[in-house]
């Protein structure tokens, strides 16, 4: 419990960085830093150079940063059924709903977009409900 404040502080600093990155992308590249949208653009026929470079930066810099500067503990489910199902739902759902935590959550809410506010409340609610059911009524996955 006593190291909680450090985690909050790291959350806040990391969050500010994410926000600055999104602002930077908006000013220079004129786009929303929504990762599902950017990835979706890469899978479409109208690939955009801004999207490509954003993803390269995201993937490679994070890999290097984690390897040499910041040790991250990644505790992830090893149930491949859950991983397959979760991945499919995240992929399909974010495209159908036009955004994820970054696009709707960060960029949309800060723009006071009603669509994004409703989308964020919806996915937060269903995510919490899912965790409630899987963690408290089905045992660990």
């Amino acid at each position: 419990m006593d190291n909680f404040p450090t985690e909050w502080l790291h959350g806040l600093i990391g969050g500010l960085l994410i926000g600055c990155a999104s602002a930077f992308y908006l000013f220079f590249n004129g786009r929303i830093a929504g990762v599902s949208g950017i990835l979706g653009n890469l899978l479409s026929n109208s690939k955009n150079l801004s999207s490509v470079s954003f993803l390269i930066g995201l993937i490679f810099t994070s890999t290097i940063f984690m390897r040499f500067f910041w040790e991250s503990e990644i505790i992830v489910s090893d149930s491949w059924i859950a991983l397959l199902l979760g991945g499919l739902l995240v992929g399909f759902g974010t495209r159908l709903g036009n955004g994820c935590t970054s696009g709707h959550g960060v960029c949309g809410i800060s723009r006071l977009s009603i669509r994004s506010i409703i989308a964020t409340c919806t996915f937060m609610f269903f995510a919490m409900l899912t965790v409630y059911i899987t963690h408290h009524h089905m045992g660990e996955f």
Partner: peptide, 23 residues
């Protein structure tokens, strides 16, 4: 919008990973 966000939420809650962190 609602259906997509709901499906995304269920997937997110199942694993705890959304697109940004996954990449």
């Amino acid at each position: 919008l609602i259906m997509g966000s709901a499906l995304f939420g269920i997937g997110w809650g199942t694993i705890g990973i959304c697109p940004g962190p996954s990449l």
